[in-house]
């Protein structure tokens, strides 16, 4: 679309969505304010960091300058980022297995009261069990390497996709839409693909998003406990007082987690919008 046409499109009410130029302008202003607040908060935190680093000294807290000049290049020259990449792969494998178990099991729980009664205690057992207490047993069983990390991710990440899927399916199966499909004599196959899956999708996606956050927790706890891969690097950096490298790697881990969570949230909102469903914010609030 050329500039003239684009300008014309912005100044007229959309025939497809009914959004007026005034509403678009308000939405744009809101976005600008939101990003200003977000970046402003980050700026405040970084400023506080600098002040604290200056006051306690580089031995305890490196300055931002040290992290940028020493830490960040080391991520690539010393292979720390690549090692973290391996950690991410293990995390994704564990998360994929967790979802492969959680989604069908959750659907079964949601569709059948019998299976819900059978599986719910195990689901909550996995969630409530003190996993740090289970670590020695898990290490004995799976070793202290990659497999252990994947199993930890599975244990951490399986709960939310499972429970959310069960909730979503239950809402559809026990709700008015299901009764409508029975009245219209819709086949089971069509109910599954046309009603059950799209109807439970918001819950499933929310569960996956929450599970993704837990997966990050799981892999890092596993690798810190066994001093393996990224966890081992972090422990070594602390032991050898390589604080700029430590904060650079920790920052990379944190940014990756936040970015993953946010990107998935964007995908989730897009799916909901495309399907004509209410779009919610990161915490489920109306958007």
């Amino acid at each position: 679309m050329n500039r003239v046409a684009a300008s014309r499109a912005r100044s007229t009410t959309s025939a497809r969505t009914g959004v007026t130029p005034a509403a678009r302008s308000r939405a744009r202003n809101r976005k600008v304010l939101l990003w200003s607040l977000r970046l402003g908060t980050v700026a405040v935190v970084l400023a506080a960091w600098e002040i604290m680093a200056a006051s306690v000294g580089e031995d305890l807290l490196p300055s931002l300058g040290s992290v940028v000049s020493d830490g960040i290049p080391a991520l690539f020259t010393e292979g720390y980022a690549a090692e973290f990449g391996q950690t991410l792969i293990r995390m994704l494998i564990g998360f994929a297995i967790a979802c492969a178990i959680a989604l069908p099991a959750g659907a079964l729980m949601g569709a059948s009261k019998l299976w819900a009664d059978i599986l719910t205690p195990y689901a909550y057992g996995i969630y409530m069990a003190p996993r740090p207490a289970l670590l020695p047993l898990l290490i004995l069983t799976f070793g202290a390497g990659a497999t252990f990390g994947i199993v930890m991710v599975l244990l951490f990440a399986v709960f939310f996709p499972l429970i959310n899927t069960a909730k979503g399916v239950s809402e559809v199966v026990n709700g008015p839409l299901y009764e409508m499909t029975k009245s219209l004599q819709v086949s089971r196959r069509r109910v599954l693909f046309a009603v059950l899956i799209p109807g439970s999708l918001p819950y499933v996606l929310a569960g996956i998003r929450l599970g993704l956050g837990m997966a990050f927790n799981g892999i890092l706890l596993a690798e810190l406990w066994t001093a393996y891969s990224t966890g081992g690097l972090l422990e070594a950096m602390i032991s050898y007082h390589q604080l700029p490298e430590y904060f650079a790697l920790a920052g990379l881990i944190g940014l990756t987690a936040v970015a993953s969570y946010s990107l998935f949230g964007v995908f989730e909102r897009r799916v909901r919008r495309k399907r004509g469903m209410a779009v919610t914010g990161a915490f489920g609030e109306a958007s």
């Binding site: 009245s183 219209l184 069509r190 109807g199």
Partner: peptide, 26 residues
């Protein structure tokens, strides 16, 4: 027999046309 519900019971992810067509699928 056709039943019209109080709460509309339309599929939120289908358009008007798709909702009506959905009723004819069976």
């Amino acid at each position: 027999i056709g039943l019209v519900f109080q709460q509309f019971n339309l599929l939120p992810w289908k358009t008007v046309q798709e909702n009506i067509m959905f009723g004819l699928e069976s």
